[in-house]
Simulated assay, not measured.
Amino acid sequence: MSAPATEQAPLRLNDLKRHTAALRERILAATTRVIDSGWFILGPELEAFEREFAAFCGAGHGVGVANGTEAIELALRAFSIGAGDEVVIAANAGMYSTTALLAVGATPVYADVREQDLTLDPAATEAAITPRTRAVIATHLYGRLADVRAFRALADRHGIVFIEDCAQSHGAAEDGIRAGAWGDAASFSFYPTKNLGACGDAGLVTCRDADVAARLRRLRQYGWASKYVVIDGPARNSRLDELQAAILREKLPLLDSWNARRREIAATYAAVAVPDLRHPDVSGEGYVAHLYVMRSTRRDALRDHLLAAGILAEVHYPVLDNEQPKVDRRDLSASLPNSVRAISEILTLPCFPEMDGTDIARVCAALQTWSA
């Protein structure tokens, strides 16, 4: 008599235990190095990581901060953007830019996204610009670069600041120029699930100008010119600590290979042709598959189908920023048709570098048996 089949464990969107296990010795060596040094804040590990990550991006400067949302906020503050200023953003990117804008007192102006990749539409952005517009924040959503050339030209044409939100796009590039090197400033998150993730919260701002970098360094630490001497602000206490910097230094050399593996997984998913499944564009260096987000007009039924197969899928993101209770600008939704339609269709599949062939085949098999 044969033994009963073993029930498969759920396949999660990301498995940090598997990711960390492969790096255990590197991480332990990094943390030991910091502990033995006795230097835990704003020390040599952070300085080295700031240089190394800025060089990886091809940016002039890197300034480590506490997390990705404060990276956006401090980038805004570095350009003195605040009360009375407008900043054009997308409404479908998880509220992070809106949170930063509310923190500095600026007004978010929502423009629609492009249908093909759900990144901010340059034409819609230009139509939203007014005399009060100071900046545009383009989020590279799901690992796909926004139209960086168009936004760079738009910002130069209108004399406004171009900020990239790179939280989901570490290593993505266009014509060899990586995310973080196109804007006047760019924000990065190293939240553990990112393509380059810390073992906790961490963030960084890249920028072109040395004076902007110097101001960011003041603003991340109380506005100090020197210890206890405040010359700038409003400022924050927002520092990327030595332990996280050391861990990120160990991981950075592996990022390109991780991104390549993510692209392989995405390409395998995209080859599954089933009615009412719309795959993202997975081609080119501008996509690093941070999240594999597909679309279906029967999204909730698809999610239930995947769950029955032990595959956990999520929605990134279920509520537009302008419809959040804190913001409550539902009257704007009619002008955001692509954004509104997408939030009822999008579904994120598991996609992380440690997935093996069995994991990938399991997802593909579940998609192939889906019938709308």
Score class of each variant (00 low, 15 high):
Val113Tyr: 02
Ala91Phe: 06
Asp184Met: 09
Ala361Gln: 14
Arg132Thr: 05
Pro10Trp: 05
Val229His: 09
Arg134Asn: 09
Ala150His: 08
Ala309Ser: 06
Arg215Gly: 00
Thr297Ala: 14
His316Ala: 14
Val288Lys: 09
Arg218Asp: 03
Leu302Thr: 11
Val272Met: 05
Ala71Glu: 10
Ser37Val: 07
Ala361Ser: 14
Arg263Met: 03
Leu306Gly: 01
Leu196Val: 13
Asp112Leu: 02
Ala91Lys: 07
Gly60Gln: 01
Phe40Glu: 00
Ala173Ser: 14
Ala210Phe: 00
Ala48Asn: 05
Val274Lys: 01
Asp15Pro: 00
Asn92Thr: 11
Thr119Leu: 02
Trp224Gln: 00
Trp370Lys: 08
Gln168Thr: 09
Leu102Phe: 09
Ala365Asp: 15
Ala123Phe: 04
Val136Ala: 10
Ala198Val: 08
Val282Trp: 03
Asp256Lys: 13
His316Asn: 12
Ala75Thr: 05
Gly43Asn: 10
Ala91Gly: 05
Leu248Lys: 00
Ala225Phe: 04
His61Asn: 12
Gln368Thr: 07
Leu28Ala: 12
Val272Thr: 15
His316Val: 14
Ala100Ser: 13
Arg262Thr: 10
Thr125Met: 06
Ala138Asp: 03
His290Asp: 14
Asp184Asn: 15
Leu291Asp: 12
Gly310Met: 07
Ala90Cys: 05
Arg263Leu: 08
Pro108Ile: 12
Ile343Val: 15
Arg114Asn: 09
Pro44Gln: 15
Leu16Ile: 09
Ala260Ser: 06
Ser238Gln: 08
Asp209Asn: 15
Arg295Glu: 15
Phe162Ser: 04
Val88Asn: 12
Asp112Pro: 03
Asn67Gly: 14
Asn67Tyr: 11
Ala185Leu: 08
Gly62Leu: 08
Leu11Cys: 04
Trp224Phe: 11
Ala78Gly: 13
Ala75Gln: 04
Ala138Lys: 02
Asp201Lys: 03
Ser169Gly: 10
Gly180Trp: 07
Leu42Lys: 13
Leu101Pro: 01
Gln8Leu: 13
Ala235Gln: 06
His316Arg: 07
Gly200Leu: 03
Gly286Ser: 13
Leu306Thr: 03
Leu145Cys: 03
Ala334Cys: 06
Tyr269His: 01
Glu242Tyr: 00
Val327His: 08
Arg132Leu: 11
Ala127Gly: 06
Ile265Tyr: 02
Pro44Leu: 12
Leu11Ala: 08
Asn195Asp: 05
His140Tyr: 00
Gly159Asp: 08
Arg341Ser: 12
Arg299Tyr: 06
Thr358Tyr: 01
Val229Gly: 00
Leu254Met: 04
His19Ala: 14
Ala179Trp: 05
Glu314Arg: 12
Gln116Tyr: 13
Ala30Asn: 04
Glu7Asn: 06
Asn259Lys: 08
Val363Asp: 01
Ala365Pro: 10
Gly62Trp: 02
Pro337Gln: 08
Pro325Ser: 02
Glu264Ser: 09
Tyr317Trp: 15
Glu264Met: 04
Met294Thr: 02
Ala267Val: 13
Asn14Val: 15
Arg263Gly: 01
Ala366Val: 04
Gly171Ser: 07
Ala91Leu: 12
Glu25His: 05
Ala135Pro: 02
Glu70Ala: 11
Ile27Glu: 05
Ala270His: 05
Asn237Val: 15
Ile343Phe: 04
Ala71His: 09
Ala59Phe: 06
Ala308Pro: 02
